[in-house]
Every structure is written in C-alpha cells, then in structure tokens.
Design a protein around this nucleic acid. Structure first.
Length: 419
RNA sequence: GUGAGCAUAGCUCAAUUGGUUAGAGCACUGGACUGUGGCUCCAGGGGCUGGGGGUUCAAGUCCCCUUGUUCACCCCA
C-alpha cells in the first residue's frame, strides 16, 4: 500500500456529492443577495491573536482545537476555526463602517479545528456565514432568521427547529452570571468534574452540560429572562413579536449559550434530529461589543450566523438535490476523418450553449453507445464513412431508440433535436 | 484528550467448533451482436484478508501491538 490517503478528518468532495454542495452554495448566494448581502473573502490564515481575542482564550476552540504554527518568519499564525473573527478584522482594518450602514456580508469557505472526527464533525469543514454590522435593532435579528428560513425552504429542508435565546449584554449578564454561580455553588459537590471547572471559568456553560446528574440539578434554576435588563428584555420580546409577524416558528431555549465568548443578547440555533449527536446545522447570534474590541468604531452592533455545509448536505440527501446536467448530445465518430468533423461540430454546439461530448474516432460503435449511455446523453450522433459520403449524420435518441438523419454541417438540425 | 465498535476485490458483503485453492453481487473489460446502448447470458482481470508480532500440525478466524475508520464523550457548524 503505497497510495496516499487524506489526513484524518478531511474529505474529498466530488460527484455526485458535489452537486448537493453546489446547490446549497448557489441557493445561498441567491437568497443572501435578495437580502442585500454581498460576498466577502478573507484569508484562511490570520495572526493567531485575531482568533484568541475574539473567540476567547478559555474556549475549547482556541484552547485545544486550533491549527497554530509559526511561519518561516516566526509569525504566530493560525488556520481559521470560524469565519466571524476574520470578517470583523477585515471590517475594522478597511474601515468598512464608511460604507452605507448597515453593512451586510456573507462568506463561504473551509474552517479548521483539530478535533476527533465523528458524524457531522470534521477537521476541515465548510461554512457559509453572514454578518450584519451597524444595527442594534431586533429587526435585523428577525430579518436574518427570516433569510435562513427562506434558504431552508428553497432547499426543501424541513424537519428543522429554530431555537432562540438571549444571553444579555454587558450590563445584565454579570447579574445573571452571579445568580448562576450562587445557584450552583450550593450544589458544587454534586456537579460533574467538568462542571466544577466551568463554575469558575465559564459558568454560563453549566447550562448545557449533558451530564444527567447536572441536568437534574438544574431544576429550580433561576430563569434567564428574569435577569435580563430592560433593554435586553425589550430587544428579545420585540424579536419574538417580529418572528410572529413573519410567521416564523421558533422555540425558546434558555440553554443556548454558545461556545464563543463574543456573543451578546440574541443567540440561536437551527437544529435537526437527523445528524446524530451534532444537531446544530446553523448557529449564530449577536456580538455587539466585538467590533469595538477590535478597535473599530464604538457601539458598532453586529449579528451573524454560520451554516455547516457538511451537515446541511447530509440533510439534503433525501431531498431534491440538483443532478448533474445531462450531456445532451454525444458524438460517435468512426475513424479519423469523422473524429475531426465531430470535434468541430461539438465546438460549434458548445458555442451555442449546448453541452456535448465527443468520443474518440478509434472506438467501435458499440463502445460509443455504451459510453453515451453511461454519460446519460439524450442523443448519439453517429458519423461514419457512409455518413460522410452522403453528407449527413445519423442521430439516435437513447430514451426510445428512434433514429433520423441530419445534414452534417447543419447546426440548426442538431439544435432542433433538443426540446 | 477519553471510551466503545469495525478493518476481507474499486464498492457492499460471505467464508461451519481454527481446516487445505478466500467466494458472491455490483462496478470495470471483452464476447454472444465484426455499424447500435440499457435487459439477458458467458468469459476475464483483479486480494501479502490494513500493517507487525505471537499461539498452533494448521490463522481471514484466537492473543498482543500498531495504523486507519466509525460512533459517542468534551466541545461545536
């Protein structure tokens, strides 16, 4: 075995799987454009600080999952583990706040996290994400969730649930956090070992521990909405009202706290039951302080989300994925002269926008037929010596075997074959 | 990083309590049909049974190690 294999947790994507991916990408571009988003492309590598400062030093992502290394110049560099940090860096670096507000961007591309692969989780995975800068109002939250809704509908993906939550802002989160700490401190002895650490480092994450014992302890937990300040409470209520107006169904899930430190107020996930343990297909939220923390204009509120491509593609497996566009005509030349004629006919047809394939002149007709069939061609155009002598070609429709003749150089007659 | 399962042809899988030459379907190539595909029939190529070591008269099968993979935990898209 001297063959090379892919690295652990990365994958080649090709036909027919690639058509599902293209459908998702094409549809997302279309829908996002309708909502006023324009594409943004940022590098896959950044200074490591771009990620550690935004995502949070104590999160799992930067703590143990980043591909980090020094380049030949000794610069500390990381492969991006997610998209938002780079977009924010780009926004600040290029003073994009000077564009008409709010600014809307979407991106697509590969992300990297050093994790143990499992269903729906890879070391190189792909996201389509969108970000809006410069609007604090819940209208943007609702609009974004509506955009997601439209995308899912267009892709024929049902069976998903939109879950929303609010985790407060700089003003009210400390109160809430203190209440959580107080609540669990009494029960610390009964918490799992992970949660004992969380109690000190990141108490919010006590909320979504899956350990049964911890889940039981959560009974009687102070309710998050009770601790939101008036502004955050108002924001959250307004969002829910707008979602109702737009007839977007959702459930409130006070346990959504997200694993990245930059989130404020609205957080949300689109979940499914079809992906094993990885139920989040799309996730995102507000990050009203991050732009300022990156040195951008103060009080630049922002919100964004990311779609997991691999997970999305898996959901589409039974759904209406676009198939490879069929080759409409297959040219079957018999002999060198016929091959040359076929080749130039093919070029003419391609210039007219018709997808055609040209076989090789030294194949038997039987081989040609088999190949045409395998490529799903609608018609085979047979050109042998007899045809050349008569100045015409023989066409055969593969679906029913009907045959006819066409003038050898009359492009219109080939075009006419195609419905 | 932790735990469990699985590695046999390109793919999906067989192979009695350990037993002699490791099989089948699909796919591929050729033929039946020398200028006509799909369906059918026939034939052919393909394997160090993931790798290494051990037990045994005998190992695809049992044991150990290793690598890969799958699923789950942590966490996340």
């Amino acid at each position: 075995m001297s063959k090379y294999n892919t690295l652990k947790g990365v994958a080649d994507i090709y036909t027919p799987e690639i058509y599902r991916w293209q459908t998702i990408e094409d549809t997302a571009r279309e829908v996002f454009t309708l909502y006023g988003f324009s594409e943004i492309r940022t590098p896959i590598i950044e200074y490591t600080e771009v990620f550690t400062r935004s995502i949070g030093q104590s999160t799992d992502i930067v703590d143990k999952e980043m591909y980090t290394f020094n380049d030949r110049g000794g610069r500390g560099i990381s492969l991006r583990p997610e998209g938002t940090a780079s977009v924010v860096r780009c926004y600040v670096q290029n003073n994009l706040h000077t564009l008409p507000a709010p600014q809307r961007f979407y991106y697509t591309g590969a992300m990297f996290r050093y994790e143990r692969p499992q269903k729906g989780r890879f070391r190189q995975f792909h996201q389509i994400g969108a970000e809006v800068f410069g609007s604090e109002g819940p209208k943007v939250d609702a609009e974004m969730l509506s955009m997601i809704n439209v995308l899912l509908k267009r892709l024929n993906i049902n069976d998903t649930t939109l879950e929303i939550n609010s985790i407060g802002c700089r003003e009210c989160r400390p109160n809430f956090r203190a209440a959580i700490v107080a609540f669990f401190s009494e029960k610390e002895a009964h918490l799992c070992t992970d949660c004992k650490v969380r109690l000190k480092n990141n108490p919010l994450r006590l909320l979504d521990c899956k350990n049964e014992a911890c889940a039981t302890l959560r009974g009687g937990l102070p309710s998050i909405p009770d601790y939101l300040c008036d502004n955050c409470r108002g924001h959250h209520q307004r969002l829910k009202d707008l979602l109702d107006t737009l007839k977007i169904s959702f459930v409130e899930n006070p346990m959504i706290v997200r694993g990245l430190d930059y989130y404020t107020r609205t957080t949300f996930e689109v979940t499914t039951q079809h992906l094993g343990a990885q139920k989040a297909v799309i996730a995102g939220g507000r990050y009203d302080n991050l732009v300022q923390e990156f040195g951008g204009p103060p009080a630049t509120a922002a919100i964004g989300f990311a779609i997991g491509m691999e997970r999305m593609a898996e959901l589409m497996e039974d759904s209406s994925a676009r198939c490879q566009p069929p080759t409409r005509l297959y040219f079957a030349p018999l002999g060198k002269e016929a091959e040359a004629i076929s080749l130039s006919l093919c070029e003419s047809l391609r210039l007219r926008g018709i997808g055609v394939l040209c076989g090789e002149g030294d194949l038997s007709l039987k081989r040609h037929m088999k190949i045409a069939d395998r490529f799903n061609a609608a018609f085979v155009i047979i050109i042998g010596q007899e045809e050349i002598d008569r100045g015409e070609t023989l066409w055969r429709r593969l679906s029913d075997g009907q045959q006819g003749i066409a003038g050898i150089t009359r492009i219109e007659e080939y075009l006419a074959l195609i419905p």
